[in-house]
Design a protein around this nucleic acid. Structure first.
Length: 463
RNA sequence: GCCCCCAUCGUCUAGCGGCCUAGGACAUCACCCUUUCAAGGUGACGGCACGGGUUCGAAUCCCGUUGGGGGUGCCA
């Protein structure tokens, strides 16, 4: 364990999927841990009993791995589980009680609401503060918020001051004896030696409370850093109810981890020059909290897609073919695919689209109605196909260049340009008006299949 | 309601008092290239929320207004 460098942490609560916002927070922490020679601690905050599935932890780990956060590297530490530290949380609670920083309260939420209403105050107003209650069933432990104010020194937003008069005596331990987030979080950070807490802005209002606990426990609070939240098109915080936030979903749709990582890092941060596509190592060396923006950023899938296309085009042929593999039906011949792959690479946005682009090579053609309507109902389609079929039938040198040259000869009497002339052949062979370059496709498809498809299509025109 | 944060093209951002006639990227549109569609190239469109200050000089500093966001749990 590195005891000298800074110790960052990422503390997600398991929910069954990995939130893209969480991914960004994790990445920010990871980048900082890397560039400072520090440690990235993973702590699963599983104290809420409703959130407690062992397999969800595996999901978090594999999501982190996918993002390039190497859980087996010396920079990584954990995972720790908050639920296993309940004793420590309670010990801290007892200490706070003993030192007078906390007190017991037996008012139920209903009672509090009632009394607040009748007295015209906002929430809990410290009614049990000086009752001197001892611990007991049905009693919660509350923090005694002192007079004054707390200044949170935030590395991304500067100093933020909170007046204690607007912070009520918050609960540390529930009436059932379990610790609440604010307490558990702080105690864990203490015992794990956390020096830097970098998290989303939604935690900023919690921070004065947590800082008060640090101080009450006689410890120096960590360096805070609250990064802006990610929002949807309506500028609301990304929520799993309404928005597509599961990292796993993007992964399944064929987004590249590198593209996702690069994109996420540019949300609220930029390298400073005019580049946004840049390798992770460079991001690490350039990233600084002081350069992080202060306003919420829209998670724009369109731009993510653009990044993805960019990353796809940066791949070598071999890398591209390998990357496509999981998205291709196992029975499709990989050598055949490799032959056409260079032509599909610049046309792909996500890998989930790949099979739909080349399917005609591996399976029966299905004629797309509107494509057929568009090009096969013209007067030239039939005669042109007849001529092309005949010329192709006599051809032995079945190569893209030759196939193209022949069609150019064929089209001449019709007074067509290649763009128009290739259309009937394309629809005949692929079923659609759009697709990979035609003659290269025909070459890959082979003479026999090409010709039989052209003949079938020719017959269909007559019928 | 109260507390806190924020405010440059539609979006993500550069800008940290003069280099700004505000730069880049995505999206959109046009043209070029072209074997359809992409990719690529060129270009266009488009922004400092508003009002006061401060200053010789404000996108940049201060105040206010407006707008947006976050929080306000015995959730995390």
């Amino acid at each position: 364990m590195n005891s000298s460098g800074p110790r960052f942490r990422f503390a997600p609560s398991p929910t069954g999927f990995f939130h893209v916002g969480g991914a960004r927070t994790a990445l920010f922490n990871w980048a900082l841990a890397r560039s400072t020679g520090g440690i990235f601690v993973l702590r699963i905050e599983d104290t809420d009993e409703a959130r407690n599935r062992p397999e969800w932890t595996d999901g978090i780990l594999s999501a982190l791995e996918w993002l390039g956060i190497d859980v087996s590297s010396p920079t990584f530490e954990g995972p720790y589980f908050q639920s296993t530290y309940a004793d420590e949380h309670l010990r801290a609670a007892a200490k706070l009680f003993e030192t007078g920083h906390a007190y017991y309260c037996e008012m139920s939420p209903d009672e509090i609401a009632e009394r607040a209403k009748s007295e015209g105050v906002m929430g809990y107003n410290g009614w049990s503060r000086d009752l001197g209650l001892e611990p007991g069933p049905g009693r919660v432990l509350r923090f005694r918020v002192p007079e004054g104010s707390t200044i949170v020194r935030d590395q991304v937003r500067g100093d933020v001051e909170f007046d204690h008069s607007v912070i009520e005596d918050f609960v540390l331990v529930r009436s059932n004896g379990t610790p609440v987030f604010n307490l558990a979080n702080v105690v864990d950070d203490m015992s794990m030696g956390i020096t830097n807490v970098i998290r989303a802005e939604e935690h900023l209002p919690n921070t004065p409370k947590q800082q008060m606990i640090w101080t009450a426990l006689d410890r120096e609070p960590p360096a805070w850093g609250h990064v802006p939240v990610l929002v949807n098109e309506q500028r609301k915080k990304l929520s799993k109810r309404r928005d597509k936030v599961a990292l796993e979903q993007y992964r399944e749709e064929g987004f590249l981890a590198d593209a996702m990582v690069n994109y996420l890092m540019t949300l609220g941060w930029s390298a400073g020059d005019d580049r946004e596509i840049l390798p992770w190592d460079e991001i690490v060396s350039l990233f600084a909290l002081s350069d992080v923006n202060l306003s919420p950023a829209f998670f724009d899938v369109k731009k993510l897609a653009a990044f993805n296309g960019e990353y796809i085009r940066m791949m070598t042929d071999v890398e591209f073919v390998a990357a496509c593999d999981p998205w291709l039906p196992p029975e499709w011949d990989r050598n055949t695919f490799a032959a056409i792959a260079p032509h599909v690479q610049p046309r792909l946005v996500t890998f989930s689209d790949v099979s739909g682009v080349v399917d005609f090579i591996f399976q029966e053609v299905e004629f797309d109605d509107s494509s057929w309507e568009k090009v096969m109902t013209t007067e030239v389609a039939g005669p042109l196909l007849d001529e092309a079929i005949q010329r192709y039938t006599d051809l032995d040198d079945w190569q893209a260049d030759t196939l193209k040259a022949i069609l150019e000869e064929v089209m001449e009497p019709f007074g067509l340009k290649l763009g128009k002339a290739q259309a009937p052949v394309r629809v005949a062979v692929t079923g659609r008006t759009v697709g990979p370059p035609l003659f290269e496709s025909l070459e890959v498809l082979g003479k026999e299949t090409t010709l039989s498809r052209m003949q079938v299509a020719r017959g269909r025109i007559s019928a």
